[in-house]
């Protein structure tokens, strides 16, 4: 860059801006690559899948337009209906029970117990295990021939039955149990952080007011926790909606198709039956379900922030 233009007013006015821009150049270069790549992955593949869902693609993607035919045919299958009913049952049971177990663990750990760090790690550990491992281990535990039932039977209680895994009506609850085992530690960690951030003076005030332990939690502590409750529920719900590997490893969707979930149906259409169009249609519907949870949550967060800013 020439320095001889120092005397001209336009050069002296421009140079600070240019210099500042040059200084920030490396930052821009560094951030744009990963930003483009990740945005490309999300946007391009979502758009691609959405496009495929409107084409007559089977084994390989093909051009063409079939309108909503893939959607109507997916919605017409028994597989999808069962998967969606299961999702409602599993989503509700998993989210509510995991949150309750997590909250209970958090409250118990919050009683200034000894060995808190060890227990906290133990409860949180399942979160570090992959869903496939969880599913496999629980499939052994719940298998009547080699798991809990056999253990109890061998100990002498021969009439004991715990065969939910092979029971059409109860099999979905085995997935709920494994899901709770995996995720309640995570819920506990968030709730515990919330409990610990409750103002000490608030608890002192309630003690002086004469609130017993039950009233202390229901009227004073838990009401301050509800933003965390909502956050935990939303995170768990999106876990539930996209559950795949857990079911795949634990029941494989069975017995029969009794424990199908939408993600399994998508996999089934795309890679087992070789119908990319219908699989994509199912995937888009699953995405819409997820958005149905996440968008209201985002709106709620936005509203709360606005309200906090105005207060």
């Amino acid at each position: 860059m020439s320095v001889s233009t120092l005397g001209t007013p336009s050069a002296t006015r421009l140079s600070p801006a240019i210099l500042a821009g040059l200084k920030r150049l490396p930052e821009w270069l560094v951030i744009w690559v990963p930003l483009l790549l990740s945005a490309g992955h999300v946007v391009v593949f979502t758009a691609w899948t959405t496009w495929i869902s409107f084409t007559p693609s089977t084994l390989v993607p093909v051009d063409g337009w079939v309108g909503l035919r893939n959607y109507t045919s997916v919605l017409g299958t028994r597989n999808w209906k069962i998967a969606f009913d299961n999702l409602l049952l599993f989503g509700f049971g998993f989210v509510v029970l995991t949150a309750l177990v997590g909250l209970l663990l958090a409250i118990l750990i919050d009683q200034r117990i000894r060995g808190e760090n060890v227990l906290r790690s133990i409860f949180l550990y399942p979160m570090a295990v992959s869903f496939v491992v969880t599913g496999t281990v629980w499939s052994w535990l719940l298998n009547p021939g080699m798991g809990v039932q056999k253990l109890v039977n061998d100990m002498g209680w021969t009439s004991f039955r715990f065969d939910w895994l092979v029971d059409r009506d109860m099999a979905i609850w085995t997935i709920v149990i494994a899901g709770i085992w995996q995720s309640s530690g995570f819920a506990m960690a968030l709730f515990l952080a919330g409990l610990r951030s409750v103002e000490a003076d608030l608890i002192k005030a309630a003690q002086i007011d004469g609130a017993g332990p039950f009233r202390m939690y229901t009227r004073v502590i838990l009401p301050t926790l509800w933003p965390i409750v909502v956050a935990v529920m939303v995170i768990l719900l999106q876990f539930a909606i996209r559950t795949f590997d857990l079911v795949r490893a634990l029941t494989g969707g069975g017995p029969g198709i009794a424990t199908q979930l939408p993600a399994l149906v998508i996999y089934d259409f795309m890679f087992q039956r070789g119908h990319l169009g219908r699989g994509s249609a199912a995937a888009v519907m699953m995405l819409l379900t997820l958005l149905g949870v996440l968008l209201p949550y985002g709106a709620w967060k936005y509203y709360m922030r606005r309200r906090a800013a105005n207060a």
């Binding site: 103002e199 002192k204 004073v220």
Partner: peptide, 21 residues
């Protein structure tokens, strides 16, 4: 005697008002 039975009342630095009430 526990705090609630001491016949006292306390005002805190942080006010300690129950936010949900």
């Amino acid at each position: 005697v526990p705090p609630k039975d001491r016949d006292i009342a306390m005002v805190f630095q942080t006010y300690a008002l129950y936010p949900s009430m």
